[in-house]
Amino acid sequence: MAGASSVLSDGSLLSRLDHALLKLERALALISGFAVFALMVLAVISVGGRNALNTPLPGYVDWIEQAMPLIAFMGISFVQRDGGHIRMDILIGQLRGRALWLFELISVILILILMLALVWGSWAHFLRSFDLSAPLWSRDSSIDIGLPIWPAKLLAPVAFSVLCLRLLLQIWGFGRAFVLGLENPVAVPLIQDSAAQAAHEAEQLEGRD
């Protein structure tokens, strides 16, 4: 229900930081997009190899499982930047001004608490699979062709850390809006009403068919 929303900019430090982080986020999301593309190519190779040459791609499933975290996590902060993560905005959509910023602020702080915990937990998960004294530093390997799993596990704390940075900026942004009672704060996603949002969505498809 909460799809895309708009983020305003100005020349302030906050806004510049927002754009700097956005560059990183977009790059990470693009990596994730390419991983999806690779998945497609991998399947063509696997099916082709099996049927044409009787040589299935060794460890096809292992490779997919390794690629999935890349696909699933790397765009998470990019989505949060635009307020794209799904939520019910029936109630929050009715709020205006300080009341709205307070709600957004609390909600973003709660998310930060969760994500800090998950950075810690997923880092611990990574560490259990990582052993500097072992070959390929591996203490956990995939079932079929024994790929080390730690690189894939490392992606979670990395992507989550970037999200934590984003959340810090949004806390700053919403906090500032709340304290100063701003109308249109920069660097935070602003709720569009459903119609504007739908128009935005349709705009994205413009000229594509």
Binding site: A124, R128, A134, D140, S141, I143
Partner: peptide, 26 residues
């Protein structure tokens, strides 16, 4: 199932079953 050893290590549960071949490096 592939993470039962992790769960034991964390202390999430007290007993578990696993297969060596799921994760030879563990």
């Amino acid at each position: 199932n592939k993470e039962n050893l992790d769960g034991i290590s964390i202390g999430a549960f007290e007993m578990a079953q696993f297969c060596a071949g799921y994760h030879r490096d563990k």
